[in-house]
Simulated scan of single mutants.
Amino acid sequence: MELVACNPADPFDGAPLSSADPVRAPAPTLRDRACGALLGLAVGDALGAPAENMRPSEIRRRWGRIEGFVSLDPAGTDDTEYAIFSGLLLARHGSALTVAHVEQAWHHWIADLDEGPFRGAGFSERGTLENLRRGLAAPISAQHRHAWSDGLAMRAAPFGVFAAGRPLEAARLVTIDGSVSHDGEGIYGGRAVAAGVAAAMTGAGPAGVIGAALSVIPMDSWTARSLRRGVVTAQRSYPDTLTMERAVRSSVVIGGYPWTDLAPEAVGLAFGAFAAARGDFRASVLTAVNMGRDADTTAAVAGALAGAVQGAGAIPQEWGAAIGPVRGSCLPSMAGQHILDIADLLVPDDLPETAEPPEGRPGGTLSGTRPGHDPQAAS
C-alpha cells in the first residue's frame, strides 16, 4: 500500500472542531480507513515506545521535540501485539463473540503456553494471567490491582473497525473482550476508543468521534471527566505547540501518581491530542508522544482515531513502511503477524465500501492475507 503524507493547515490555530470530515476530499474508502486505524495504532505505538514513562522535560533533554522515529530499529510493543490478538479473535467470531471465546483465547495463545516468563506487557495483563493460571474465570480473572489500566484501550481499535458506523456495537464487543482482564474505568477506556473509531470509520470528524466516545461511557465516570477535560483544554488557543501540550497534560494527569497506565489518563491525553490536532494524523500522534507518560499507548490510540478519520493516505510513507510483522516481544504466539492483515480480516473483500459489516459474521475470513503470514496458524 502506498502511503502519502498530507500537509494540512496549522492544527493548533484554535479553530473549533467540525462534525464533518475536516481534512480530505474525496472521503477515504472503508478499507482505507480500516488500514489507517490499525496501521495508525502501530505507528503511534512505535513512535511513542522510546518515550514511555518519561516526562516532557526528559524527552526534550534527550531528543528535543520528537518529530519522527528516534530509534534506528522502530518496533511496536504490547499495544500492537494485543491489538492483533484481539483482532484475530474478533475476525474468527465477529458479533457472536462471547466471554468464553475470549477466555479460551487467553489460555490458548498466552496462559497455557510453556514459554518461560511472561515478558513485555503491562500490569493488567500480568494480573490477568496470574489469575487465569490459578484457575479463576472471568469476570473474577479481572479482579486484580490494575483492572483500571489502559490495557483494553490500547487494543480496542479493531472493534471499531469491525463495527464501522455502530459505536454501540463496538462498545458491546470490546466490553466482552475486556471482561477477562479489566473492570470499571479500564472497561470504560476501551469502550470510548472502540466507539470513537467506529464513528470515524463511516466519516465522522473529530467532534463526532469524541461525541461517540462519550456516548458509551457514564458521564460521571473518571474516564469521561478526563476525556472532556483533555478535549476542552485542547480546543483553546495557544501561542505554540509546547504551551498547548503542557496545558492538556496538566488538565488530565494526576500529579505525583507513579503509574502511567491509568485508562482515564491515557484516554484523556489521547483524545486531547486528537482534538488539538483536529484529527490530523501526524499532529495527533506527535502531540501524544511529546506529552510523555504512557506515550506508546496514548500515541497508539490517537493514531487509531486519526487514521480512521483520514485513512491510510495520511500516514507519512516512511512511518508506515517502518512497520513490519510484530516480533512477539510480548506475545510470542503473535510473532510474524502484520497489523494490516487484521484490517484485511475485519473488512471483507466483498463488502461495499459504504456498507456496514453484517451482524453476526466476522469482518473477513482467515485467508487472503499478506503473503507469508497466516493468522490461522496462531489460532
Results as ranks from 00 to 15, higher is better:
residue 2 E to S: 13
residue 6 C to H: 09
residue 6 C to M: 14
residue 8 P to H: 08
residue 10 D to P: 09
residue 11 P to T: 05
residue 12 F to Q: 08
residue 17 L to R: 07
residue 20 A to P: 03
residue 22 P to F: 12
residue 22 P to W: 09
residue 23 V to F: 10
residue 23 V to I: 15
residue 23 V to K: 04
residue 24 R to L: 04
residue 24 R to T: 05
residue 26 P to Y: 06
residue 29 T to E: 04
residue 32 D to V: 02
residue 37 A to E: 06
residue 38 L to W: 11
residue 39 L to T: 05
residue 44 G to M: 01
residue 46 A to V: 00
residue 49 A to D: 10
residue 51 A to M: 07
residue 55 R to G: 09
residue 57 S to L: 06
residue 60 R to W: 02
residue 63 W to F: 07
residue 67 E to P: 12
residue 68 G to Y: 11
residue 71 S to M: 07
residue 72 L to Q: 10
residue 72 L to A: 11
residue 73 D to K: 08
residue 74 P to R: 05
residue 78 D to P: 05
residue 79 D to Y: 01
residue 81 E to S: 03
residue 84 I to K: 02
residue 87 G to I: 04
residue 88 L to P: 09
residue 93 H to Q: 02
residue 98 T to V: 02
residue 101 H to E: 00
residue 101 H to P: 01
residue 103 E to D: 01
residue 106 W to N: 00
residue 112 D to F: 06
residue 114 D to F: 00
residue 115 E to S: 04
residue 115 E to Y: 03
residue 116 G to E: 08
residue 117 P to N: 10
residue 118 F to I: 06
residue 120 G to W: 02
residue 120 G to P: 10
residue 124 S to A: 15
residue 125 E to M: 11
residue 127 G to A: 12
residue 128 T to S: 09
residue 129 L to S: 09
residue 137 A to L: 10
residue 142 A to H: 03
residue 143 Q to I: 11
residue 145 R to P: 15
residue 146 H to E: 03
residue 150 D to H: 04
residue 152 L to F: 03
residue 154 M to F: 02
residue 156 A to Q: 04
residue 157 A to W: 04
residue 159 F to Y: 05
residue 160 G to W: 03
residue 163 A to N: 01
residue 164 A to L: 09
residue 166 R to T: 07
residue 175 T to V: 07
residue 176 I to C: 01
residue 179 S to I: 11
residue 179 S to D: 12
residue 185 E to V: 10
residue 194 A to M: 11
residue 194 A to V: 08
residue 198 A to H: 04
residue 199 A to W: 02
residue 205 G to Y: 07
residue 210 I to Y: 09
residue 214 L to T: 15
residue 219 M to Y: 13
residue 220 D to N: 13
residue 220 D to W: 04
residue 229 R to T: 01
residue 234 A to Q: 00
residue 235 Q to R: 12
residue 235 Q to K: 09
residue 238 Y to A: 10
residue 243 T to S: 15
residue 245 E to A: 15
residue 248 V to E: 08
residue 250 S to M: 10
residue 251 S to A: 15
residue 251 S to E: 06
residue 261 D to R: 09
residue 264 P to N: 12
residue 270 A to P: 05
residue 272 G to D: 15
residue 275 A to W: 14
residue 276 A to E: 08
residue 278 R to I: 12
residue 278 R to M: 14
residue 283 A to V: 12
residue 285 V to C: 07
residue 286 L to T: 06
residue 287 T to L: 13
residue 292 G to Q: 08
residue 298 T to H: 05
residue 299 A to R: 03
residue 301 V to S: 00
residue 305 L to M: 11
residue 307 G to P: 06
residue 310 Q to C: 07
residue 315 I to T: 01
residue 317 Q to V: 00
residue 318 E to S: 01
residue 338 H to A: 04
residue 339 I to V: 04
residue 339 I to D: 01
residue 348 P to S: 06
residue 353 E to H: 12
residue 353 E to D: 15
residue 355 A to V: 15
residue 356 E to A: 11
residue 359 E to Y: 13
residue 359 E to G: 06
residue 360 G to W: 07
residue 362 P to S: 14
residue 364 G to C: 13
residue 364 G to M: 10
residue 367 S to F: 13
residue 370 R to G: 13
residue 370 R to W: 08
residue 373 H to A: 13
residue 376 Q to I: 14
residue 376 Q to R: 08
residue 378 A to C: 14
